[in-house]
Design a protein around this nucleic acid. Structure first.
Length: 335
DNA sequence: AAGATAGTCAACCGCCCCAGC
DNA sequence: GGCTGGGGCGGTTGACTATCT
C-alpha cells in the first residue's frame, strides 16, 4: 500500500517506509525523544524529511497506538463527536485513546460516511438527508437488519442539533413528500418552481412510504396515512384541476414530534392517533410555510416550496440538495 | 481466468497557526 | 508589525487488495 518510493529534489526519500527505517526511527525516538522533528532524520540516520518522520511516528510507530477494527462504541463516539465538531479529526482523536486522526479520518471516509448515507442521514449535517433520492433507497434501508439502529442514530443526531429551523424544514419537506405520495404528478408549473423538469416516480415514492408505514407500525409508532395509489398515473399535466386530497396525518418519520423548547432542548412527544403534530415551533416565519391546508391547491404546495427555498438564501445547501436531486439522473424519473 | 471496478489506507501536500526574533 | 521556521491539521493521492462481471 501507499506510494511508490521516490526521491524529492534534494534527495530525500518519499513513499512507503521500510522495516529498517521504522526500526531506526522508533529506536531513536525511544532513546532520545523528538525534540525537533526537523533535526531528527539526520540524527537518526534517516534520509527522510522531518515531517515524514513525525507522520510515521504519530500514525504508525507510536507504542500506544491501537490497531484493528473500530468497536461499535468507538463508532458511536466518532459519529457523536463528528456531529459536534465536524471534520476536526485531531480533536475527535483526543477522545479515542490509541486512535490517530488519520485513522479516524480514513474510517469515517470509508465506512461511517457511507453508513450514515445508507441510513438516510446526511454525514455533513447529521440530519436526515434532505435529498429526495433517499426514497429510492428506502426499501433497502428499511429492510436492513440495523434499521432500528438508524432510528437511534437519527434521534441522537437530532438531539445533538440545536437548529430547530432545520427541523422545521425537514418537517416541511416531509409534508411535501406526503403530498407527492398521495397526488398525481405535479404540474409543469410546479416543477418549474423547483427549477427542474424531470418527473417524480410517484409509484416508487408511494411504495417507499408504504413500506415505511409497515415498519413504523411494527415499531408501535405512528404512521403516515396513504391514500390509495391510483392504478393509473395520470400523464396528462393539463389536468390541473385534479382534486388533491392527501390525508393529513403527518408524523415525524420516526413516530414522534420533536420540539425545541426555551432551553434549546428537544422534547420528544409521541404522536397519538390521527392528530396532526405541531410543526417545530422555532421559527415563526418558517412555521406553516407549507401547511397542509395548502395542499388542496396543486400548485400552492410547490410555490410554497419555492418560497421556502428562496427564503433561505444563506442556507443554500438545502436548496441545492433538492434541486440537484431533482435535476440529476439519480432522481427517479419517468418520462 | 482475466479484466474492470470499488474499497482501503498509508503517505504526501498545502495551508494555517503560533512562537520566537 | 513583519518575517521565518516548526508543528499540526485536513484534504487528497495512488498503490495495493478484494470483489464483481
Amino acid at each position: 500500500m501507499g506510494r511508490s518510493p521516490s526521491l524529492d529534489e534534494i534527495g530525500l526519500k518519499k513513499g512507503p517506509w521500510t522495516p529498517e527505517e521504522d526500526k531506526r526511527l522508533a529506536d531513536y525516538i525511544q532513546r532520545n525523544g523528538h525534540a525537533s522533528w526537523r533535526a531528527l532524520p539526520k540524527l537518526a540516520g534517516l534520509n527522510r524529511c522531518g515531517k515524514s518522520c513525525r507522520l510515521r511516528w504519530t500514525n504508525y510507530l507510536r507504542p500506544d497506538i491501537k490497531r484493528g477494527k473500530f468497536s461499535e462504541e468507538e463508532e458511536q463516539i466518532i459519529i457523536d463527536l463528528h456531529a459536534l465538531l465536524g471534520n476536526k479529526w485531531a480533536a475527535i482523536a483526543t477522545h479515542l485513546p490509541g486512535r490517530t486522526d488519520n485513522e479516524i479520518k480514513n474510517f469515517w471516509n470509508t465506512h461511517l460516511r457511507k453508513k450514515l448515507l445508507q441510513m438516510g442521514i446526511d454525514p455533513v449535517t447529521h440530519m436526515p438527508r434532505t435529498d429526495l433520492s433517499i426514497l429510492a433507497n428506502l426499501p433497502q434501508l428499511l429492510a436492513a437488519p440495523n434499521f432500528g439502529n438508524s432510528v437511534n442514530l437519527w434521534d441522537r443526531s437530532l438531539r445533538l442539533q440545536t437548529d430547530g429551523t432545520q427541523l422545521a424544514k425537514i418537517q416541511s419537506l416531509h409534508n411535501i413528500l406526503q403530498v407527492l405520495s398521495s397526488t398525481p404528478p405535479p404540474t409543469m408549473e410546479a416543477l418549474h418552481l423547483l427549477g427542474s423538469q424531470p418527473l417524480v416516480d410517484h409509484h416508487q415514492i408511494y411504495e417507499s412510504l408504504r413500506i415505511m408505514n409497515s415498519q413504523l407500525d411494527g415499531l408501535g409508532n405512528g404512521h403516515i396515512n396513504l391514500a390509495p395509489y391510483p392504478t393509473q398515473i395520470q400523464s396528462n399535466f393539463q389536468n390541473l384541476d385534479h382534486v388533491y386530497q392527501p390525508t393529513h396525518e403527518m408524523d415525524h418519520p420516526m413516530g414522534s414530534s420533536k420540539v425545541l423548547n426555551g432551553d434549546n432542548q428537544f422534547s420528544v412527544t409521541p404522536i397519538a392517533g390521527n392528530s396532526l403534530p405541531a410543526l417545530v415551533s422555532v421559527n415563526d416565519q418558517m412555521e406553516n410555510k407549507i401547511s397542509l391546508a395548502d395542499v388542496s391547491n396543486p400548485s400552492t404546495t410547490f410555490e410554497a416550496l419555492g418560497e421556502l427555498l428562496n427564503d433561505e438564501a444563506d442556507d443554500y445547501y438545502w436548496r441545492s440538495d433538492i434541486i440537484n436531486q431533482a435535476t440529476t439522473p439519480s432522481w427517479p424519473i419517468s418520462r
